[in-house]
Simulated scan of single mutants.
Amino acid sequence: MKSLKPTAILMLLFFSISVYAQRNFDDVKITTTKLTDQVYMLVGSGGNIGVSVGEDGVFIIDTQFAPLTPKILEAIQNISDQPIKIVANTHHHGDHTGGNENIGDLGATIIAHDNVRKRLIDKSPKSALPVITFNDKLHLQINNEQVMVFHVENAHTDGDAMLYFTESNVLHTGDTYFNARYPFIDLNSGGSVNGYIDAVKSGLMVIDEETKIIPGHGDLSNKAEYFTFLNMLETVKIAVLQEINNGKSEDEVASNSALTKTFDNLGYGDHFINSEKMRRTFYKSLKE
């Protein structure tokens, strides 16, 4: 394995002055799941990471939180001794971009949608910023396959990207998919219920029954589970729209657990977004 330069090691070990300093990441373990001969999924704390390895170097999708960088690098070095060449961010949230500066300081090129750079530029050092941005879509040719990178509008945020590995048949959805749980739709960052539903439909259009899906959060998934997630979104949308049409207020909808009971019983609300937050978000977005 190639070793890191001493300056890089020092930077990683002493990265104690951080917006995440109050949070303890000591017990977080990075688990690695092999999806194909060259594509892997890393799970730790924050958004799930996609990794492509091969003769061109290492390509990763998202970087989780900054204090986890040493653990993430160790997990990657157990897969490949090649350097990280490219990082793609699926959106701007810190649990997906927090390690950008660390990885950027090691020489990686960061890619993201135009709006990701716009949202990071005032609060991030230069090495954490995307240096290649796109508006609609782009294609990467890396490790003997084409990776389709495409923007989905006003879904989780206003800068979401999905990535599809055309030979490996792997889709990384970013946070436009939370497997078996209610999603976080960031209305303050341009997200919307209708855009989120459209994003899932876009993802379903490029995959088949054999596709392995890396969701933004949750376990490795497949087309059947992805379709179930879409059904949940559309079912809740219909229920909330009916309440809006009946003149119900935001608080009345938020407190009406019957609207999401089917999915609450399946554990969708047992995570970051509970059922009350889900109903309130849907009301705010659909009422506009």
Score class of each variant (00 low, 15 high):
217 H>V: 07
222 N>W: 11
194 N>W: 05
200 V>D: 00
198 D>W: 10
209 E>M: 08
217 H>A: 12
224 A>S: 13
200 V>N: 02
221 S>V: 02
224 A>G: 05
210 E>T: 15
203 G>I: 06
219 D>Q: 11
224 A>P: 03
211 T>E: 06
192 S>R: 03
208 D>M: 08
203 G>S: 14
213 I>Q: 01
220 L>V: 06
203 G>T: 09
204 L>I: 15
193 V>K: 00
212 K>C: 05
214 I>Y: 01
204 L>N: 09
212 K>R: 14
212 K>V: 04
193 V>Y: 06
222 N>V: 09
215 P>G: 02
224 A>F: 12
209 E>F: 12
213 I>V: 14
209 E>P: 03
195 G>Y: 05
207 I>N: 01
206 V>M: 11
199 A>D: 04
205 M>F: 13
217 H>S: 11
206 V>P: 01
224 A>L: 12
198 D>I: 02
200 V>H: 04
198 D>Y: 13
196 Y>L: 03
220 L>Q: 01
194 N>P: 04
208 D>R: 09
221 S>A: 08
201 K>V: 10
190 G>N: 10
214 I>G: 00
223 K>P: 01
223 K>H: 11
212 K>W: 02
212 K>F: 06
194 N>A: 12
216 G>D: 00
202 S>C: 14
197 I>W: 03
193 V>I: 13
204 L>K: 03
192 S>N: 12
207 I>H: 07
208 D>L: 06
201 K>N: 12
220 L>N: 00
218 G>I: 02
207 I>W: 08
198 D>A: 15
216 G>L: 02
218 G>V: 08
193 V>H: 06
192 S>L: 08
202 S>H: 15
216 G>C: 04
218 G>L: 05
190 G>T: 08
202 S>Q: 15
221 S>I: 03
204 L>Y: 09
221 S>K: 04
192 S>V: 10
206 V>F: 09
205 M>S: 14
219 D>W: 05
219 D>N: 13
216 G>A: 06
219 D>H: 14
191 G>K: 00
197 I>P: 02
222 N>A: 11
223 K>Y: 10
215 P>S: 10
218 G>R: 05
216 G>T: 01
191 G>L: 01
215 P>F: 05
221 S>T: 05
205 M>G: 06
212 K>I: 07
199 A>T: 06
196 Y>R: 01
193 V>Q: 01
218 G>P: 01
215 P>R: 02
222 N>C: 12
201 K>E: 14
222 N>H: 13
195 G>Q: 02
196 Y>T: 00
191 G>H: 02
224 A>D: 12
200 V>I: 15
194 N>I: 08
208 D>E: 06
221 S>H: 03
208 D>G: 08
215 P>H: 08
211 T>M: 07
215 P>C: 11
209 E>S: 13
207 I>L: 03
221 S>N: 08
213 I>N: 00
201 K>F: 08
212 K>N: 11
190 G>H: 09
191 G>Y: 01
190 G>F: 11
200 V>S: 00
210 E>H: 13
194 N>E: 14
196 Y>H: 09
205 M>A: 15
217 H>T: 09
213 I>G: 00
197 I>M: 05
198 D>P: 01
193 V>F: 10
217 H>K: 12
201 K>D: 10
218 G>H: 08
202 S>N: 14
214 I>F: 02
203 G>K: 06
214 I>R: 00
222 N>R: 12
195 G>H: 04
219 D>A: 15
219 D>I: 07
215 P>E: 06
221 S>F: 04
207 I>M: 07
201 K>T: 10
210 E>N: 14
223 K>V: 04
